[in-house]
Design a protein around this nucleic acid. Structure first.
Lengths: 132, 132
DNA sequence: CTTGACCCTGTAGCAGCTACAGGGTCCATG
DNA sequence: CATGGACCCTGTAGCTGCTACAGGGTCAAG
């Protein structure tokens, strides 16, 4: 079983774009890997795990800084886990706020849609509704 | 009744940030106004109307390019109004897609939340769920 | 005449990537 | 041994939609 990967393999294993991996390294989210004789990045299984963690958290919408905090916490197994939960709860509130905002938008758009059946722009209700 | 405004007044009238107004001008969304002797921008009521239009459309989540197209259409009153409606419908679909995405996220986060009651990070279910 | 509120341009920053340009490396083929 | 193509490297610029300076000029009140 192999433990060493190039950046391309790591990308395939985790589903993360190569450029994004380098970006994560640049901002200090993914630790700098060792280098081969030809200056290629050499990743080990720890990197695969860490990057998978990052991708899942990002998929759940966590901002980079929240991911950073969760990673820091997961590196200190003897700390209470409430902080992690707080991050999840905060993120859920954020998502709920966004949903509420979008629901309001959808209602507005719904009222707007199909108000101009075949007419001309000159008496379009939509344009009218957006005008002062 | 006044028809001339400085950028600050225009900002207050429309609720748009001054820097944003200049940005809209730079990207060609708001036409360049006349200038005073001291090189101040001088806005007229047409600008107030146009910027109000822009702000309302942006508040509804329309991307800048959609706003640009709607403005172009509203400048041609003799064209059919179906294109405007198409933009509204497209924007509504976009909003609905985002809502669906966020609902899925919310469900995931809900499953995740409160899985670690008072425990330590070392056996936190959340961290576990994010790990490979 | 000075103060303070306003305005000007130009540039850089935010999030979170993505996309080059212009090179170097590695390995399988002929 | 040479060559081709797939991969990798760094560094920088672009995307959306603003926002925030820095370092100046203008204008009206007191």
């Amino acid at each position: 079983m192999s433990v060493d990967h190039t950046i391309g393999t790591l990308g395939k294993l985790t589903g993360v774009n190569i450029e994004t991996i380098r970006y994560y390294e640049r901002i200090g989210l993914l630790p700098e890997p060792a280098r081969s004789s030809g200056n290629y990045r050499v990743y080990r299984d720890t990197h695969v795990r860490r990057l998978t963690f990052i991708r899942k958290a990002r998929d759940l919408g966590f901002p980079i800084e929240a991911v950073r905090r969760m990673l820091a916490l997961s590196d200190q197994p003897d700390r209470p886990c409430g902080e992690v939960d707080a991050l999840v709860v905060e993120q859920m509130r954020e998502v709920e706020r966004k949903i509420a905002d979008l629901e309001r938008l959808r209602a507005e758009l719904d009222r707007l849609a199909h108000q101009c059946r075949g007419g001309l722009v000159s008496d379009c209700r939509i344009i009218e509704a957006l005008s002062p």
